[in-house]
Design a protein around this nucleic acid. Sequence first.
DNA 1: CCCCGGTTTCTTGTATGCATGATTTGAATA
DNA 2: TATTCAAATCATGCATACAAGAAACCGGGG
Lengths: 236, 236
Amino acid sequence: MAIAASISSRVIDAVLGQRLAPDARLGEQQLAALFGCSRTVVREAMIDLAGRGIVTVSPRRGWYLTAVTDVFARELYDARLIIETGLLRQLGARGGRLDGAEIARLRAHLDAQHTAVQGADVGRRSHLLGDFHVCLARCLGNGVLAGKLRDLTVLTTLYTMRHQTPGDARRSYEEHVGVVEALAAGDAREAEARMARHLGTWELKTTHARGPDPLEGLRRALAPPAGLPRDHATTP
Amino acid sequence: MAIAASISSRVIDAVLGQRLAPDARLGEQQLAALFGCSRTVVREAMIDLAGRGIVTVSPRRGWYLTAVTDVFARELYDARLIIETGLLRQLGARGGRLDGAEIARLRAHLDAQHTAVQGADVGRRSHLLGDFHVCLARCLGNGVLAGKLRDLTVLTTLYTMRHQTPGDARRSYEEHVGVVEALAAGDAREAEARMARHLGTWELKTTHARGPDPLEGLRRALAPPAGLPRDHATTP
DNA sequence: CCCCGGTTTCTTGTATGCATGATTTGAATA
DNA sequence: TATTCAAATCATGCATACAAGAAACCGGGG
């Protein structure tokens, strides 16, 4: 059964690292061959991932990474905002603060993000920037919400890969630093506000891209080249 | 595959209705016979439930309903508080209010709770009182968090079945009424406060029962009868 | 009476085989 | 050339068979 968990984990890593895009096909046979096990084990992993919303099964057709719709993405961002600010708010309400070891862990994570942001590996960058939120939630002491947040982060990545946001990695990193610094200073309330702003800007970026336009993909792909006359139109 | 979902659903219903207690054994063979399918399908349901934390597998021994520990229960209550108050806070922050249809749905649910609280079916009572929170979350428009909340409610039930709280069903019902009335009046902020108080009292009830006492169950069971002399002690 | 060893039974873990249905391919036809 | 229909292909859905390990059971010895 550890094999199934490993498959799930590898798929999640691949998504976070942007090596797998939404609608990517995950054939049972292929994964079985790749991991040297039978379809039964692959199936367990797929069912697990499906329960977390990361893959979707089309009956008798196959398993695919879920394509996150706009309205669902809105729910995702709402959920993340509620969970992450809620955890920080709770820390503040209880007058608690993170101990040195946890602050150190967060700072180490920030260091990794820093080098990744300066590097060229866009997958690793995305992975670390997303994983920071999970790491923070875990430091805040709630494993249940941390686990859910990991799934939400994966789904968020699946969404942003399509609607490629500006991807201002540097800014995201700096906002992460701001949150950790507030926590290190023992100011949980400020950390909460900064996190709300951090997630809020994301939400805005996607909000302007909303609107019921099911032809978004086609429209973008088939848009006429700007500035060129339609010199090969079929109906003049 | 609909069969597997049905099995999961039936197990969840049984827990919410307190017809299955923690540590209850869920044998693959027995469930297969009961649902008229093969172990393969049962296995899918178990894996799904395991991913949601509702069942736990002991290798080569069997599947059991998870026994929620005290520290984990604390996380559960924290998570519920964050999610439920967060949803209400978000509604207030956006200045929105529930429309008539949703208020009506909540009121209908309250009616069902009312009759159940007065009735004798303790299972149905527990089921409805727990389900109210899920219904509310769904009315608040976030399916992701509503789904997670359902799982958390199941786990909460598994915990309270052991540490039988006073079970003040009437009071719970009245607090639910208070939340819905605030929502009907368009006062999301008040609804949030009432929900926080509602969940807070629960948390208190379990908090006083906390403390690292792994012998709690034994101690309670083997406590000497008050007032009676130990006239049959083995060592006089 | 209690304890210890082997055996038996019962459970899940994994692989495999067949059924079913969706998709694609191909040729025949208007 | 475009279209339609049948057959082949390929994927998952489900059941079953076997392997492996855990717990229970039973007999013998102290």
